[in-house]
Design a protein around this nucleic acid. Structure first.
Lengths: 338, 338
DNA sequence: CTTAGCACTTGAGTAACTTGAGTGCTAAAA
DNA sequence: TTTTAGCACTCAAGTTACTCAAGTGCTAAG
């Protein structure tokens, strides 16, 4: 009970909690001396710590851990919040990416923290189509489609030396040989035998190969969205500019961030401080949750905040959000899959 | 001479400059008392100011203005810097946007400030083509091309109720009526008579109209790139989180930023502190320069830094950069226009 | 096992003092 | 008339000393 009260108090006030205030707040009547004795025991166990020899106590990482694992009760979500979620997710989205991107935004707005969202994926993407769309005299758009429905495109200019026939031959070559293959195989093919074959049709295949490589890399990347980047400024000790820079840089590296978020699990996962694999985040906490989009696989939403975040509220919020999002996606797929 | 020395000193050290240090540094031999007399005169003119009654002097906005208008000599660019610029611009860019985007990055890296770049534009964009490219069973990509060569695209899902014929009819409708019109006219047509006409072909035209509106808006927007956003953390008094937030928000509003940058002029323009129209930037300085890309119009590059930036170095740098960029673009167009 | 009492610790805030860089002004020197 | 030495004065910034309140641990009594 005392640990729970300390966590609750400290996460809401940010000030170390002392025995007297704590005693006044506990449901039964005890004196501050009693509380002090118990606190000494909790400290012995490594669950709480002092900031200096005569200060009140704050939870340690281990203390938060115990709290999250055994004591926390997710707050029921506020009616107001659920309204915001529902109405933000409601609009007419024509792309699933918009829903996912919006999710990160809502979550960061509701919490004033930074939120991440990953779209559902049920298997490794495979190439399902590649085309070159002529746009004007010398402009061409390369479009790549995966079997997950992801689309990547890029425009580029061509020199006059390439004819439409040549382009079509190249497209056919790619599609004949590579459709249905996982993107990483396509990528390695691009580095081995494809260049030689393309060279049959194009005198200077470098430009085309670069574009193809670019869209391929973009499509193969973990794609996720970040909402409320700027909220980092609220809860980070904003004195350390270098730390902020590394944080922002980290968020721009999709693959590193995907590592941080880790494998999707079924329950809501809380990683606290040094438990996070990436050192840059050692003073933060991360709440990740999986959402299921029917048989379209699992996606991930996550919340990054200070170690001393109000876990009960946040866990309740993420839990509710995940359900709303899952429901919304099932509706979406029902509409477009029918 | 004294004003010049004050500006030079203060911009490099950040500390108000006193009479003694100044006297030691001037080319002729004068005592500190003489310098003090002159400084009192400069203060009378409003060119310099004290931070407190017994402090050294710092330039006022008016002082910087005079310095920039009459005294500054652009530093010759360092051989090393010019190498960096040349090599960064060299690579094989297949899209002009990449060159422009890279420009902002180089400029911010070289200066540790925040840089902006606007692509060259010689007239208002007009619609030169619109298409719908079917990608899979229910996925369609909308592509819009302007006569400036800008391309905007967006994928969306359709319900089964729309046939290929219908889509083609809609595309023909758009192209027949709107090609060659300036984008703002297209946009207003989209809000007036287009919906009714599209309704002839589609039962539920809302989805399509939204997508068309979206790509149109994106294409009509001033497009510019920002490099070194994070550098703001270096030179802003990073204590004020709210100020930083407004700055970042401003940079995400293309139209507001376009206002700030102002109309392209022929020379390098320096706006200091309160001279900048936008209040959020009243403690910063902005160096803007136009570059010419042959007969493809003029573009703008800009540099945002603290009021106390080393103007001579920055002006020299921006000047050199603008020339390199212009040259690079002329080469680019020569290659693809031929 | 709980609690009152008490000596002790510490960060945070405040006031007093010192230091040094700088100023303006005056009167003498150039 | 301009320059300079000299000097009293100002102020920010740093240091030291002191107070205060919140908190602790420990002991002995309930």
């Amino acid at each position: 009970m005392i640990l729970k009260a300390i966590v609750r108090d400290y996460t809401s006030s940010g000030v170390p909690v002392g025995s007297k205030a704590l005693a006044a707040q506990l449901p039964m009547h005890v004196s501050s001396a009693t509380v002090r004795n118990e606190m000494a025991a909790l400290e012995e166990l490594g669950l709480i710590a002092k900031t200096h020899s005569s200060s009140g106590r704050i939870p340690s990482v281990k203390g938060y851990r115990y709290y999250v694992d055994h004591l926390v009760q997710p707050d029921p979500i506020k009616a107001n919040d659920i309204d915001i979620i529902k109405s933000s997710l409601e609009g007419q989205f024509l792309k699933i990416d918009e829903i996912i991107e919006t999710s990160a935004k809502i979550l960061s707005n509701l919490t004033s923290y930074t939120a991440f969202s990953l779209k559902p994926e049920h298997k490794q993407s495979r190439l399902s189509g590649f085309r070159l769309v002529p746009l004007g005299k010398r402009q061409v758009m390369a479009v790549l489609v995966t079997d997950n429905g992801d689309v990547e495109s890029q425009t580029f200019n061509i020199t006059t030396k390439i004819t439409g026939d040549q382009l079509e031959a190249v497209v056919r070559l790619i599609n004949d040989q590579l459709i249905g293959k996982p993107l990483d195989e396509v990528l390695s093919a691009l580095k081995s035998d494809i260049p030689m074959q393309v060279a049959h049709y194009l005198q200077q295949p470098e430009g085309f190969l670069k574009v193809f490589g670019d869209v391929l890399t973009k499509a193969a990347q973990e794609r996720f969205y970040v909402g409320g980047r700027l909220n980092l400024l609220n809860f980070s000790d904003n004195n350390d500019v270098d730390e902020l820079k590394s944080l922002y840089t980290l968020m721009d590296h999709n693959d590193d961030m995907a590592d941080v978020l880790g494998q999707p699990t079924d329950h809501i996962q809380v990683k606290i401080g040094s438990e996070i694999t990436n050192d840059i985040l050692k003073d933060y906490s991360l709440i990740t949750a999986t959402y299921e989009a029917g048989d379209h696989g699992k996606g991930v939403i996550a919340l990054l905040g200070p170690t001393r975040m109000p876990y009960s509220r946040m866990i309740g919020l993420v839990g509710a959000f995940r359900q709303e999002l899952a429901q919304r996606l099932i509706d979406y797929y029902r509409y477009f899959d029918q």
